[in-house]
Design a protein around this nucleic acid. Sequence first.
DNA 1: CTGAAAGCGCTTACAG
DNA 2: CTGAAAGCGCTTACAG
Lengths: 345, 345
Amino acid sequence: MKSAKNVASLKTVASLAGVSIATVSRVLNGDPVVKDETRLAVQKAIKTSGYHPNRVAQRLRSTVRSKKLIGLLIPDIQNPFYVDVIRGIEEYAYENGSAVVIGNFSQDQKKERLYIDILRSESVDGFIVAPSHGKDQYVESLIEDGYAVVCIDRGLTNLNVDVVKSDNEKGAFNAVEHLIKIGHRRIAHITGDPSIPTTQERIAGYMAAHQQYGLPVDEEIVRGRASNFVSGVEITRELLELPNRPTAIFTANNLLTLGAFETILHRELKIPEDIAVLGFDDVYWATSLNPPLTAVRQHGFEIGQRAIELLYQRIEHPDRLPANVIVKTDLMIRKSCGFKLPSKT
Amino acid sequence: MKSAKNVASLKTVASLAGVSIATVSRVLNGDPVVKDETRLAVQKAIKTSGYHPNRVAQRLRSTVRSKKLIGLLIPDIQNPFYVDVIRGIEEYAYENGSAVVIGNFSQDQKKERLYIDILRSESVDGFIVAPSHGKDQYVESLIEDGYAVVCIDRGLTNLNVDVVKSDNEKGAFNAVEHLIKIGHRRIAHITGDPSIPTTQERIAGYMAAHQQYGLPVDEEIVRGRASNFVSGVEITRELLELPNRPTAIFTANNLLTLGAFETILHRELKIPEDIAVLGFDDVYWATSLNPPLTAVRQHGFEIGQRAIELLYQRIEHPDRLPANVIVKTDLMIRKSCGFKLPSKT
DNA sequence: CTGAAAGCGCTTACAG
DNA sequence: CTGAAAGCGCTTACAG
């Protein structure tokens, strides 16, 4: 019997209940037309046979789009922000009987494309994607082919599509404003990968705060290459070696923050006395850092939930207008920035 | 054209190439019987039509088990250890054309069961599971029904099954031995959920080290309830308030470590001078903690890779004997334990 | 109210 | 070497 999955099918149930498979199917789909007596018999047969519908066959057959299988394309599963997003999506999916296929493409476009191909051929009912950049043609083609698609974290420049993301500009603005208010005048910004839209939005917030408070921007201390840990380490090092060192660093994501923290502590400099650190992305280990990190919290879980809600709606109403949901961020003030800047110079 | 996925099928390709769908199928599956001329024509038609096989139909049709779709059941996607495992599995799957469906059941047995049902009815070709406990009947039933199953992190007590996991006992032993060697004599152990096998194995390692070095164990400072952050906070607090406070704490996973760290720093105690901390699970933020954490590194990525390799083998040879792979751990010595215990008392 | 039948996109003996 | 046909497990008009 090994390796033989003798699963009950419609046929099993039908013969057990003495009806046709069409009738069983109707009962399963809650068709009210079925006679009560028949329904009861079928339900009993379903129970005793331990029948579970075969979703593969369902998916192959049905022409109307259902919500059984959702494809999820994540740029980096190691980033806790995306883990929160995933949890938000999964919780909702779970409650509504959908399954989620996660493809983690690790910021690799070739991998992203492979996953899109696979998920297409698995006939997923919809996609939730963080496009690798603003004009991601593979994601565009998905929409053009009529798939239900919701973007998270980043939108598409050429196409009008449902998007759910944080208010990056406002979040960055609030962060920098906070630094200014507690006395900082020379604030560095370690940005993420400049090609990613989010990076640009956070830079915009940084600039806007300077503008509003009449502070000049020194382009020399606004720099970024990749969005990863190594980049955080390197750029922090560069900043610390500047003759006119900044008094605060605003990092654009949690990996960069980690790089900055490690580099600063390694040099035996004190946070925030020698240099303050404020990071975009609040994460679960932020309060265990020493000192605890002041951070811009993104609501990843909510972003995930809103995204899948929109996806459900999109599947039901393919023609409704695309929505653009901006989720607010919160500034979590802890100790890594200090309260008042020590009167220096 | 909106919402109408006009995808090329075998039929499209067949008529384009002027052959039957059977022939197209043969070409796709590399059947050597096809005439070269025909093959070329078909291949050209495949290209021009942009054909991609429909995996749903393939899965429905084929009786032999393939490796196209792997189901992955993860107890807690927020735990970076599992994220590493996922990455290991995914990388291998990606290279071999498999897709991975991840179900994150959040230590919730009901959710685990739902996901198993869903994945069953998606006809996955195999499962990789971390069973919620040693006698997880739902996982057992999977094996009994002939599915290919590989367990990670924890095995099954009643059934002989492929297992890949860390050498928990040895890892814990090495950790405690290190603490003893640098002078600690009173070492607390904050354990994970006592019902999880891994917890027991780590406790065993703790005990073995004490035994080997002739150190008595004080049961009062070996305690644990859940495997989460809150439990880490609470138990650390209890330990710190003991009249005869331990000089070191060995925490059983990264969440507990975080709880301990935060609690200790919150009391303005110094690590390692006032109390040393050594954690099971090395994580990417461990070096950014202040002081950097001495930790037992598990090789999650490798565990994932070994698991999916075993799964592939199991699918090919359903009857080969179950393997039990134990992956070694490494002790990463950093600063949270100090080097020599300050001569105290 | 229920059943017979077609068909979703494939694969695979079976003929020829 | 290639095609016609059956069938995987469903759903859904169409008859009755």
